[in-house]
Amino acid sequence: MPRRSLGRPAGVVLATLAAAGGAAAQSSVTLYGALDAYVAVQSASGADSRKVLNSGFNPNALGFTGNEDLGGGLSAGFTLETQPVLDTGGTGQAGKMWGRQSLVYLGSGSYGRLSLGRIHTAGRTFGIKYSATGWLTTDPLGNLLIAAGSAMAPVMNLDGAGSRTSNAVLYSSPRLSGFSFSLMQSAGEGGSFAAGSAKLTQFGAGYTSGPLTADLVINRIPEVPGSQIEQTDLALGAQYSFTALKLVGAFFSRKGSSIAAPGATTPIPGSEGTDRVLILGVSVPMGVHTFGASVGRLTLADVHRGRRPANVAAPISTVPDDSTAWSLAYTYAFSKRTQAFVAYGALNNGELGSASLVGDLRPSAGGTSRLLASGLRHSF
């Protein structure tokens, strides 16, 4: 999203404060953000349909980031980022002031960057990158991963380990011959897994060469009695950009257990198994117009059918079964910063499943969840 430096009078105030610390000559602070709102019709078999106003193309953001040149190729900086919820005036991530990100870092172009704080995960980045129809509420990728209980799911307004993790240390390497990698470790302090305070180790690697991009993410969640249950997630994706379109494909697996009730921290004995998700999509840019289509399939281990996945709390905890989801999307760019969009998506459950495109309007077992949305997004 576009970013701009703070002007007067806010820029003067910040510059004055920086000067008091002796760093005004080498520091800069930037304000940035993105806001979107849509109107939609949601429906679920066995439940009434309804109209909503919400945020659903990409997550809303309002942030400040700063950087100081320390000399010798070394720099230090910070990011503070909150998430406005336009339809209510509140904030996401359970009302945390800086719930999207809050971190400091020390970096070098030759040696990479070390960040500490509440940080976006490589799994979140993967989930956004491989959503072929744009990171929309209707997109199959996030919805099928949430249904399976994967820690790769790009959860938007909610506070969970799929998108960001508290009490974390992250090392990000520089890109060398097209390759890069990252390694994150979180301490799991100050709260439960479901409250975004998971203890986990996550490794990400990527490769880019011309029109080809490939990514790998491995996520390891250890058992912490009373907080989280052992789980391993893997994501592997590739995309290729042709002259007229971009093809996207991704594979996910989750090895973990089931629980008896939302938020439970004890696994059902004998319920460990591996679930898999396959996603295929295409994006077609045509000047100011972009068309997208995506389809995905969730295949559960037999021991997981009709049982809730571990490490997922209300309101996104659901009873899953084998499921298929698909989405169509169209965006129109008024400018580089303003887009209008319309999207339609559906999620079809197997006979035991009640997964949905929205967490608080579930279909009956074996039913279908549908959503038609249209809205506006503006970045600054």
Rank of each mutant, 00 (worst) to 15 (best):
A346Y: 04
A148P: 04
S173D: 03
N311T: 02
G359H: 08
D159M: 07
A261M: 12
R297D: 10
E189N: 10
N219T: 14
R4W: 05
F291G: 10
G345F: 11
S45D: 15
A329T: 02
A238V: 12
Q101G: 00
R305T: 14
L300G: 06
G204K: 02
A310F: 01
Q228I: 05
L136N: 08
D36P: 05
A20Q: 15
V52M: 08
M97K: 13
A205K: 10
G142H: 03
S115I: 00
Q231R: 06
L6K: 09
M156D: 15
L298K: 02
L17P: 09
S271V: 08
D69P: 00
Q202C: 02
D69E: 02
G191C: 08
E351T: 13
L357F: 05
G66P: 07
F203A: 09
F341G: 06
M286Y: 12
G127K: 00
S364W: 04
G366R: 01
I316A: 11
G226K: 00
R307H: 04
D321P: 03
S150M: 01
A24Y: 09
A20L: 14
A355V: 08
N167E: 11
Y207H: 01
G263V: 11
T274Y: 03
S166V: 07
L141W: 08
N157T: 15
K336L: 09
T30F: 12
A161K: 07
L158G: 07
A194K: 00
L86N: 10
V39N: 07
D36A: 04
G367M: 12
S209K: 11
V85Q: 08
L361I: 11
T88D: 13
T165W: 06
A147I: 01
I279S: 00
Q93N: 15
L361P: 06
G162P: 03
A23K: 09
A261D: 13
L216H: 04
T30H: 14
A161C: 12
S173T: 03
V52W: 07
V41Q: 14
Y240F: 12
Q93H: 15
Y38V: 06
A373Y: 06
G287T: 12
G92W: 09
L347G: 10
L114H: 13
L116D: 03
I268R: 04
Q83N: 05
G134H: 00
T274V: 08
F179Y: 15
G263W: 10
A261P: 08
L372N: 06
A329K: 02
L14A: 01
A194V: 02
G296C: 03
T265W: 04
S182H: 01
W135A: 14
L352F: 13
Q231E: 09
S317Y: 05
R3H: 13
T290Q: 12
A314V: 10
I119L: 04
S379L: 04
A260P: 11
L106D: 03
T274F: 03
G206L: 06
D139K: 02
L74Q: 09
R297G: 06
G117H: 00
T82A: 06
L280D: 13
A61L: 12
S356P: 05
S45A: 15
T165I: 14
L278W: 14
I316Q: 13
F64Y: 01
L17K: 10
P225F: 02
L106F: 04
F181Y: 09
A40N: 13
